[in-house]
Nucleic acid binder design. Structure first.
Lengths: 214, 214
DNA sequence: GTGTGCATGTAACTTGTTACATGATTGT
DNA sequence: ACAATCATGTAACAAGTTACATGCACAC
């Protein structure tokens, strides 16, 4: 349920159409919370029904044959945003495909195990680079959304606004590094197991699927 | 879609009823993939319809007024398990409530920000301890499920079976430590921001929710 | 005129959550 | 008798994914 609050937070930076919102979303919170634009439109309508945002229908283009809807935070929406920031949520249970597979790698061959760890490393290397680039941008105040936020906030608050975001993305960099290191130790492990194994590429014989009694 | 494969992997250790499966599940894969028992029963029926598992109805107790259903892997199920282990999946997009909130902490007070980081730290400290305990158990070969697996596997494979699991849980320990360190740096950051702030507990004025033009 | 971007959605489906519902068996 | 544990589900809902669908505006 972070989507609605991410949208409220984005709207605090100023009125936007769903389309603009989706664009900003992709360039900021999408790093930590993914959503399709179709879901964003749906959620905006829901927020509107609940009175957390308000929409004004505006003309599009000169001839105005079409319209767009610009959303703003209502007072109730701003209150909800604040409530959410103060609320300590209990983190959802861990759910990670890569780790469940990692615990069952013995059902595959050594080369398959290596492929898994290499893919894991490559994935988090790419993320690390993205996060690092984003930290740089934030520190230079170079992201358009951040500038928009800063314009509306009093000078004294600027440091905190930037610092919190930088801290979050640095945390993601640290996390990515941890995953890369884990994948590398995984590759070393596979090498050791392959050396110790009698012969062939398999750690154990493949699962049989034969029936047996309990 | 890891639930089905986790169930297949558990069944590779021997035939089980849904109830037993749910119990083993809670003691092993639940660390990395949560599921309610109701979902497990549903998924088992689905796997049965798809021919990946087979069920035999067995009597319960002496009078046998009730029955239970014991599931076994079919050949197709074993094949699917192997296919899955070899398959390199693309990791689902990141989704972390704590981090989206962390990027918007300026909407709350410093004490709220501290509470968030303290909760984060406490959560991952507890997880770290659980994961460490689990690594210990695995290394001592002390978990019942692992023993069941080892009984059915050839001697040469034992090392790999244990090593992969230990590696996965050590990775989770490392991850938990990274989160703890991040929370601690977060607390330091809040202290610095609070020192630098003019007065009061708030980083910026609360969001107004007043309408404005675009 | 044509492609790119702006703009907004619906529908069907999958996955997962929460709550409810029931009853037998076993040990004390 | 009673509690704990074994045992199996259904129903309603919420959240998220994927595919589809439409059409204007603007610049080249």
């Amino acid at each position: 349920m972070s989507l609605r609050h991410a949208l409220l937070a984005l709207l605090e930076a100023g009125a936007m159409t769903g389309y603009e919102l989706a664009k900003w979303f992709d360039q900021s919170v999408a790093y930590v919370w993914n959503a399709q634009h179709s879901q964003i439109y749906t959620e905006l309508r829901k927020l509107e029904r609940e009175g957390l945002v308000e929409a004004r229908t505006l003309p599009r283009g000169e001839k105005a044959l079409a319209t767009k809807r610009a959303y703003t935070l209502t007072r109730a929406g701003a209150k909800e945003l604040q409530r959410w920031v103060g609320e300590v949520e209990q983190p959802p249970p861990l759910r990670d495909t890569a780790y469940v597979k990692a615990t069952y790698l013995e059902y595959g061959s050594f080369s398959e195990a290596r492929a898994q760890f290499r893919a894991h490393r490559a994935h988090y290397e790419a993320l690390r680079d993205q996060f690092e680039a984003h930290v740089d941008e934030l520190e230079r105040g170079a992201t358009a959304l951040l500038r928009r936020r800063l314009e509306r906030a009093p000078e004294e608050g600027h440091q905190a606004i930037i610092a919190y975001k930088v801290h979050a993305y640095r945390g993601l960099v640290a996390r990515a590094r941890t995953e890369i290191a884990w994948a590398e130790r995984g590759l070393e492990l596979v090498d050791r197991l392959a050396d110790a194994a009698p012969a062939g590429d398999a750690a154990i014989r493949p699962p049989s699927g034969e029936a047996f009694e309990i």
